[in-house]
Design a binder for these strands. Structure first.
Lengths: 355, 355
DNA sequence: CTGTTAGCGCCTTCAC
DNA sequence: GTGAAGGCGCTAACAG
């Protein structure tokens, strides 16, 4: 027991083991250890092995603060989200964390209220000044940010997650909502439905617009003359959805199918149908979008479009990290990517042939 | 335009504005600026105002890496979660982020697979060595961690989120699952139900056990002689829940009510009932637990116990930050808290009087 | 291929 | 009240 040199936390530092200690233990200089850590090709194989052994033995971990201060800047990205209501946001946060630890990027997560456009801009500017190198903007936030920063007052890259369309001035990772909706509604057409309603989401969300357009496209392509009364707009919120569905079913009792802009709204339709004694799917077919938990757990299970939010988010982080790297090399770099993920229609029990 | 001194990023540093620049601009020493930032009481009011003005004018933000390196360590907590499937975990993640940014603590999120007990321990040790000052352990993880670290091999504080019972060796923030379940089942009794089934969750989750005990307590207190065949155990998973519910309803067709250990399982019961033509709530009353989104969105809406996971999580972060602070002051400090949150029964349409 | 010299930006003594 | 040294742990430059 070598009491004279118990390497506990000394001074103010809390670092357990320092680079220097590893170097001393291995009998080399700090630089050599540093080079080993960074896998640089200028250390002999014998020494490399020795140093690695010592590192493991002492349980050394580099001090990130010191690394950063010395100039090894890991990219630092900011994720701005809005509400907890959406199951989507959980996947986004988790996906961000996963990708971030894999890609060695730091991330700050910030909650923004979208009611005040100025607040979002301020938040982003503040974060930028605090050293954020890029932003991750999940769907409703991306649209708001885009309208706030009309003339690209933002000078770090940003990636939108799951918007309905590409957003000028930033990259995007998204599903093809318009096409997927088209496919979904066409499937309804193929089942013989000709009077198909749509519960549309809020206009502020580009996904709502894309889904609405996909719906219109499909009707047109199917030779069906749509009717504005078949469409009711509402928020992505169960209670509001219920009211909207009641309104829709009341004003258009002849509908035999309804395409809801997301699964929550589809659940609203289900509830209204059940309450009114309208059998689903026998008298009314219902489809949703997102394949969120409720799609599986509702009864009957909802036919819907599956989006891999986790994978999309991870891809978004990769994109952002790459963009940050490029911009660091060339500050003028400004190439926006548009990655479109494949979607998948999930068939459950909520659709039947038109009677 | 003062071209000679454009304070751009020099050298390797990326810092936009440094403490020194603020000090020079204000004509004071760095120390004074630092004191102003940290709101220390040894700066004259006049100077304080001047310095603050300069800080705002130059848009100065302290460099966190430098601060940390110099010894101002913000606590750094680790959140370990299991899967994204659970709606509960979404609230936990978001709540952690909210509280963390409010309390100025850093957080690392890590995914753990619970199949291998060693893996969890390794993950936690690795994180600890990387500088994590404390752990946030949502329910299934906390139990696993407790059994892995039998004799407190972990030497940073931990807080369990929503376990069914206090867990030795760590603090806990939880609802009183046993009591709430008791109340729920008693309500069923009061509605005239005497044959009440229970879809129990996995034994590895202490919440399942607490809810099962609450169920048994209530039956006993109501003078009902329970029956082991009324209880079927399953995972917290919709598909498994469907199988379990089928089994339960098949072996005990006389049941008039079922208490499912969470809302997802309650949704399973609903699905089976609907498929079998058993009217809910007329022929079968169903209650769940958690008040997750599906409780509202299912049909009929589920009567359930509301737990404010977000608030509980935020409280857990506060607890953890406090414990870290205490332990820093006194490494022997080891007081475990047990915060019990109030719950609330939410009545929807899934319960009726026994016929 | 390895070791030495200077900081990165900030904070804590300790003098004044 | 304020200002000057010194160092936190690490790394980019150079020298050897």
């Amino acid at each position: 027991m070598d009491t004279k040199d118990t390497p506990r936390r000394r001074g103010r530092g809390t670092q357990k083991v320092t680079l220097k200690e590893v170097a001393d233990a291995a009998g080399v200089s700090m630089m050599t250890v540093s080079n080993v850590i960074h896998e640089r090709a200028n250390v002999g194989n014998d020494l490399r092995a020795l140093v690695q052994a010592k590192i493991k033995e002492l349980g050394y971990t580099p001090n990130r603060a010191a690394q950063q201060l010395a100039g090894i800047a890991r990219p630092h990205i900011g994720l701005i989200y809005t509400g907890v209501t959406n199951p989507f946001i959980a996947s986004v946060i988790v996906g961000t964390m996963k990708a971030a630890s894999r890609l060695q990027v730091d991330v700050s997560v910030e909650l923004a209220k979208l009611d005040d456009p100025k607040a979002l801009r301020n938040t982003m500017h503040r974060m930028e000044e605090a050293g954020i190198d890029g932003f991750l903007l999940p769907s409703p936030v991306a649209e708001f940010a885009a309208s706030t920063f009309k003339k690209k007052a933002l000078d770090v890259p940003a990636v939108a997650i799951a918007p309905g369309f590409p957003i000028p001035g930033m990259s995007a990772v998204r599903g093809d909502d318009r096409k997927a909706s088209h496919e979904l509604v066409t499937m309804l057409l193929d089942h013989g439905h000709t009077k198909i309603g749509h519960l549309a989401g809020p206009e502020t969300q580009s996904g709502s617009i894309a889904r609405l357009e996909g719906y219109k496209d499909a009707l047109a392509d199917g030779g069906i003359k749509g009717n504005p009364a078949w469409i009711v707009r509402t928020d992505f919120n169960f209670q509001e959805g219920v009211k909207a569905a009641e309104r829709l079913l009341k004003q258009e009792p002849g509908l035999t199918a309804i395409f809801a802009a997301n699964d929550t709204l589809a659940a609203s339709v289900l509830a209204v149908a059940h309450n009114s004694g309208i059998a689903v799917p026998e008298k009314l077919s219902v489809v949703g979008y997102d394949d969120s938990p409720v799609a599986e757990q509702a009864w009957p299970g909802l036919t819907t479009i599956h989006q891999d939010a986790l994978a999309m988010t991870e891809r978004a982080v990769e994109l952002l990290a790459a963009a940050i790297g490029r911009r660091k090399a060339n500050p003028e770099d400004d190439a926006d990517a548009d990655v479109v993920f494949p979607y998948q229609m999930v068939t459950r029990g909520s659709v039947a042939k038109a009677s």
